[in-house]
Write a protein that binds this DNA or RNA. Structure first.
Lengths: 240, 240
DNA sequence: CAATGAAGTGCGGGAAACCGCAATATGTGG
DNA sequence: CCACATATTGCGGTTTCCCGCACTTCATTG
């Protein structure tokens, strides 16, 4: 059994390697890559089917690497081992996981025991192992209560990129008014109103800018999701 | 000689401890804190004058911790050991360093040799040791060329928080028009114009939203700087 | 099939953002 | 003191944002 580690912090890499050899004696080979791109390459060369990776790497995000790897071999088991439980990451992962693939999401703050348990669960038992902290987000983001629909998330990203209502309408094939409707729902759910307390003589917040701000502060968005969206936007702009 | 480590990642903590004991045999005591708040407390109790800390911690940012520590004892030598060289961090640090204090800024990607050299330079020789990658930013941010003045940076933060022009004017004691002028300079420097290529029939970007976006993408702003600014804004709002 | 509800669209208007122009500080060096 | 650059302010006007209101789809359900 062969396991591929994709992780850019060398300290975390040796920690992972140790945890793996202890938790999985049936593993006889551990390969390592220190960025997403190299990870994709190694996965292809070794036809790796068991991978542990960080999200948030320089040359290629974990999400991106996982997507191309899963596109080539959807049965690959991947454990995401990440510092953060931002909604943007969780949403990004659950958006790309193929039907029936075994995967996991555990935080780096988890104990060594939890990590080892997840390793066995995913790679031996073929289960999905998701940390409780992350699980909470996942529920919320897919279910209704307080969560966001995909279309709301879309406009959130679009205004975060700085697009005008009109540009969003063009991009998403909607009327201007529909875009504005979605924005209003978004403002509603983000609770942008309730803004300032005392004399409401003049508004203190620009709604769209404020929405981006609170989305960032509440970890609904993060910068690497933004980077991703930026290149997608670039594609779209040149394509037309 | 006593050294205080403030760092939330346990792996990095032991790595640091090892590097310190190897590079500084004259050091006979190493104390550790795993967040900024605990770090402040330990610094006070031990009257620590030699500190190595991470920026980017949960309970209290490195910047915040350093500020209170330096306020109490400005001659403290602090080495910032960070993952990122975002302009927001560099600007934050150089904003709070007291006159004549020894400090350093080295990236976690630096070799162990560089780290040890910095440790000796700062704690023994009383020098300032700043990594080249960081140095570049520092030049740019303080000097003119392409850099931002403090007032431009201020409005950048304000629009990132979602404030309206009027609200910014009130907060900074300026006229509405002055705020708008600063914004235009900001847009100029961020190169927001040059935006879309072919048919400029309608604008594709909302300037203020786009400005925040590119500032984030170019690491002129980051989320923890935003969080910081958000609480300052909260203070200001209640105070009036 | 009628009823209910959710999402999209058009119209209209008030508020904010964006910006050119010009007058007035403020300040720095000769 | 004057000359010059820089920053601030006011005015006016266009564009975009924000949103209430009314109408249309379209799907779900009893």
């Amino acid at each position: 059994m062969k396991i591929l580690i994709i992780e850019d912090d060398p300290l975390h890499r040796v920690y992972l390697r140790d945890a793996i050899t202890e938790a999985l004696p049936e593993c006889d080979l551990v390969i390592e890559a220190d960025n997403g791109l190299a990870g994709e390459k190694l996965a292809r060369e070794h036809t790796a089917t068991h991978i542990v990776m960080d999200l948030q790497m320089s040359t290629r995000t974990g999400i991106e690497a996982a997507r191309t790897i899963w596109r080539e071999r959807p049965e690959t088991a991947i454990l995401f081992w990440s510092n953060y439980s931002d909604e943007a990451y969780v949403r990004g992962v659950s958006r790309i996981v193929p039907e029936g693939a075994a995967y996991g999401y555990v935080l780096k703050t988890a104990s060594e025991g939890r990590l080892k348990l997840a390793l066995r669960g995913i790679f031996i038992e073929g289960q999905c192992v998701i940390d409780r902290e992350v699980r909470g987000l996942q529920q919320k983001s897919l279910g209704q209560r307080g969560g966001f629909t995909d279309s709301e998330y879309e406009v959130l990203v679009d205004i975060a990129l700085g697009l005008t209502d009109r540009a969003i309408a063009r991009r998403r094939n909607l009327s201007l008014r529909s875009v504005q409707n979605r924005l209003q729902q978004l403002y509603e759910k983000l609770d942008i109103y309730r803004a300032t307390s005392p004399e409401a003589d003049t508004a203190t917040y620009n709604l769209r800018a404020r929405a981006v701000s609170v989305a960032l502060l509440r970890k609904l968005l993060n910068v690497s999701a933004l980077e991703q969206a930026e290149v997608e936007l670039g594609d779209w702009m040149t394509r037309r």
